[in-house]
Design a protein around this nucleic acid. Structure first.
Length: 849
RNA sequence: GGCGAAGUGGCGGAACGGCAGACGCGGCGGUCUCAAACACCGCUGGGGGCAACCUCGUGUGGGUUCGAAUCCCACCUUCGCUACCA
């Protein structure tokens, strides 16, 4: 018998550091992953993963997204598809600028350096990106097309400038609405409390596409994302109703006051009205004796941050303006209040308040002692009962009360009848309102795409002519140690003549939200250096929509919604002719820090993949991330268990390189399992390999990596048991090893390539990468089984098992089953009522008594 | 408050109408070693039994079914998103 030391000296061990860089270099040299986009001979597959922000280094979360995406690419290539898997950098944005201010360096240098490091890291994981098609959004070659499209949008009216209250972060300037987070109303980037400011800003009319964005036909996206987008767009249908202001000492009256309501059936119950503090009619409605109070309230509301406005247990506040309105259905004179629970940005910024049937109005009425009039009640209820809370049910069996001519009508019908009545008199109409607002894209920051506009005193804002694009972002900037946009001080940048009238004018200094960049980048990957236009129409037609997109769900109502909008807007510019960007979307889960919190430098819980790779090798890290759990789940990072994956690869290595090796410390090593013949073993290996292939293929298709890896582990365990025995090295063994390597190749590309090349060498064959091999096909005859073990239940409880021929008839099976000792014992004195044969998989005997 | 997802061994998780706990970690016992690490072999949901086996078990309570972790109803808990949207 050999000693362990001798055995080890003989068998070469798996050493990832020795093989991974070698193959990465070889793949790059052979340009194995650059895609020939013009190849029409094969089916195309555009696989896209969300491009990263060049923060400096990849963290384990990037690996968690990219590793399986890369495995999909490799798997699809093995099916003969022409796969395009590009990567680039979301290279504009605040961290670069903040780093620049702090360290007094140029954001461009900082960004370039980070991208270089991250490219190295991507290569170290063996990712098969098409680097030839890479892009960085801070490159003028890229952002000039942001500008070009912006000017087109200006021409078509899709981009516009407007002065309105915007969310303002003291550090980061203006924010889009979805960049303000949580109850606390904090900035998504820096966490500062967000205020409201009144500023002239640029917007894109995403609301024009609200209805189209609600339609998800033809795209296969996760239900939760579709729901989130649907809720975010927030379509609600109701009616717009015109009230008139009532004349009084200080106000002439007769002015239209429009409100939006989803409950026109409750119109008779409107006992007061409420205007948002910003509403234009507030000033003229306010009576002299109330002016001081109203102005103070409006001023306070403006100064308040949203947090304050929402805090205090949502206690309702407000003041009476001294003005009144006339309810169009019954002529009632009702008071008009100002209150900040009504928002200027939604509907018309004014509401009719129906305290009996709206919780907020009810609370307000209670607080201010305003009348509550019931107008919709359950059939048979007391019409004038005093309500404890607002009655908001609106099902089928409510009837109208206190509603003039409509009293007694079913509430469901009255909804339409009242709208019809209003329509006839020109006092109202059905209307649809959206929660979605136009997209605020101005940012008072330097490191972004300059908005290509020139402000001329005579001509107003004028788009920069196409021939003058791009408006280059000046590289030499002086921050003077402040967060101010340095473009505001850059005279060379600012001074320009008006392209329309030639008079001296001034450039716009705001830059674009970086979500503009990411709203069309996948088109640009197809022709990143194209100087004719943003997209190459032929390539776009060939390759888009993207077949599969992978990335985090946190972008549900930001990037993923903007991208859909942009695709439609680009379609309407005639650039492309498709309406959706991503045919299929998969949202992987998020890897959290070991503490269960989101990974961040400030928390100090970031996991560095370089360390892990240095210790275990890229293949082990890749496989471990895939093995952790379902891909859409994510979870807290824990490295315990990575040793199990390393052990698995070590065994694969030993199986492939040393089939005759034995385990010195195992006395049974080299022996077939007790009672098993060589023929049994050969069948078993073959069956195991082909069953694994059948099942693993399904897992690959469904991105179920954890079970995929588990099944490959099972197959390796079968082979491990036979290693060193008389069947090791026989054709069945050899076939099983071959299949194991092929199935593992997309997930663990380096070790499989190494072992594959050794096989070819040993067999005297010329080298050909494992990654260009065809995915094997299942031999059904190997999978088929002659006998089957049938579990036997009595009244649903497992009592016995029996192995029978697969083709056995139910009658025969029943005879065998009922004769089994354990079954007889379990039945006892009882009577057999029924015998259930569950598809030949199980027998259940139902007994009574 | 609203919308959504999820609750299974000590842990990550399999199974998604038909043998609960695949696969792996950890733990326990053993082989090898001067020793440690590595590697290897065996056991490992709880309770009972020398054993074959019995019994209880998938957040809680009901229901449907021959049979429920899986389907239905109610509740509890956790995590995401949202937040006075008229």
């Amino acid at each position: 018998m050999t000693t362990t030391g001798e055995a080890r000296a003989r068998a070469e061990r798996y050493e990832p550091r020795a093989i991974e860089p070698k193959w990465q270099a070889r793949w790059a040299e052979l340009r194995l992953h650059d895609t020939d986009l013009w190849d029409t001979s094969r089916e195309r597959f555009y696989l896209l993963t969300m491009y990263p922000y060049p923060s400096g280094a990849l963290h384990i979360g990037h690996w968690y997204i990219v590793t399986p995406t890369d495995a999909i690419a490799r798997y699809k290539r093995m099916h003969g598809l022409n796969v395009f898997l590009p990567i680039g950098f979301d290279a504009f944005g605040l961290p670069a600028e903040n780093a620049a201010i702090k360290n007094r360096i140029n954001p461009r240098d900082w960004t370039e350096k980070n991208m270089e490091n991250m490219r190295r890291q991507f290569r170290s994981m063996g990712a098969t990106f098409a680097w030839e098609n890479s892009l960085a959004t801070c490159d003028p070659e890229y952002y000039r097309w942001n500008q070009w499209m912006f000017t087109k949008f200006m021409e078509s009216g899709l981009a516009y400038r407007s002065v309105s209250p915007v969310d303002w972060c003291p550090n980061d300037g203006t924010l889009a609405r979805e960049q303000v987070e949580g109850v606390e109303r904090r900035c998504w980037r820096c966490g500062a409390k967000v205020e409201k400011r009144e500023l002239p800003q640029w917007y894109l009319r995403i609301t024009n596409y609200a209805d189209e964005l609600l339609n998800f036909e033809g795209i296969d996206w996760p239900e939760p994302i579709r729901i989130m987008q649907t809720n975010w767009i927030g379509r609600s249908s109701g009616a717009e109703v015109v009230f008139q202001t009532a004349p009084s000492d200080h106000h002439a009256g007769g002015e239209e006051l429009r409100v939006f309501t989803t409950r026109p059936d409750t119109l008779f119950g409107a006992t007061f009205m409420v205007l948002a503090p910003e509403h234009p009619l507030v000033a003229s409605l306010t009576s002299p004796d109330r002016r001081a109070e109203v102005e103070a309230y409006v001023e306070a509301a403006r100064a308040k941050t949203e947090i304050d406005r929402l805090s205090a247990e949502r206690e309702k506040t407000g003041v009476y303006t001294g003005g009144d309105a006339i309810n169009p259905v019954n002529g009632a004179r009702i008071p008009i209040y100002v209150a900040d629970y009504v928002l200027m940005g939604y509907g018309t910024g004014a509401i009719m308040a129906v305290p009996a049937h709206d919780e907020r109005d009810f609370a307000f009425a209670r607080r201010f002692g305003l009348p509550v009039v019931n107008v919709v009640m359950p059939r048979g209820a007391d019409a004038d009962a005093e309500l404890e809370q607002a009655f908001t049910e609106h099902t089928v069996d409510e009837v109208m009360v206190n509603s003039g001519r409509f009293t007694g009508r079913p509430a469901a019908d009255a909804w339409h009848e009242i709208v019809a009545w209003l329509r006839e008199r020109g006092l109202g109409e059905t209307a649809v309102t959206y929660r979605l607002r136009d997209w605020l894209i101005s940012r008072q920051r330097y490191w972004g795409t300059p908005i290509p506009v020139i402000h001329c005193e005579a001509c107003g804002p004028v788009p920069v002519p196409e021939d003058d694009l791009p408006v280059l972002l000046p590289d030499a900037v002086d921050y003077q140690g402040s967060g101010d946009n340095p473009l505001n001080r850059d005279e060379a940048f600012l001074r320009v003549d008006c392209p329309r009238c030639g008079q001296p004018a001034r450039r716009e200094t705001d830059t674009m939200d970086t979500f503009i960049d990411s709203s069309w980048y996948w088109f640009r990957y197809l022709s990143p250096h194209n100087s004719e236009g943003p997209v190459d129409p032929t390539l776009a037609e060939m390759w888009t929509p993207v077949n599969q997109y992978t990335g985090g769900a946190e972008h549900a109502v930001m990037h993923l919604l903007y991208s859909r909008f942009f695709t439609k807007a680009m379609r309407d510019l005639g650039l492309i002719n498709q309406s959706e960007p991503f045919r299929r979307l998969f949202n992987q889960g998020q890897i959290l820090g070991a503490d269960g919190e989101r990974m961040s430098k400030s928390r100090g819980n970031v996991v560095d993949p370089d360390d892990l790779v240095a210790r275990h090798g890229a293949d082990t890290v890749r496989l471990f991330l895939m093995f952790m759990g379902p891909w859409d789940q994510g979870g807290p990072w824990s490295p315990t268990g990575i040793g199990g994956v390393a052990k698995f690869l070590g065994r694969v290595w030993a199986i492939a390189t040393d089939p005759r090796g034995r385990e010195p410390s195992d006395p049974n090593s080299g022996q077939l399992p007790a009672g098993e013949t060589e023929a049994d073993a050969r069948n078993r290996m073959r069956a195991a390999a082909h069953r694994t292939l059948r099942d693993v293929t399904v897992d690959y298709e469904g991105f179920r990596w954890n079970t995929m890896v588990a099944k490959l582990m099972e197959l390796s365990n079968v082979l491990w048991r036979y290693r060193g025995t008389s069947v090791a090295g026989l054709p069945e063994w050899d076939e099983a090893v071959r299949l194991l390597l092929l199935m593992l190749a997309p997930a663990a590309p380096h070790i499989t390539e190494e072992l594959w090349s050794r096989r070819l060498e040993a067999g005297g064959e010329a080298w050909e990468s494992i990654h260009v091999q065809r995915w094997p096909s299942v031999d059904e005859s190997a999978v088929a089984e002659a006998t089957r073990e049938i579990p036997i239940q009595v009244n649903g409880r497992l009592r016995d098992k029996v192995t029978v021929d697969v083709g056995i008839s139910q009658i025969e099976l029943e005879q065998i089953v009922l004769a089994r000792d354990k079954v007889v014992a379990a039945i006892g004195e009882a009577q057999v009522a029924r015998v259930i044969h569950a598809g030949g998989k199980l027998v259940n005997i139902v007994v009574k008594g």
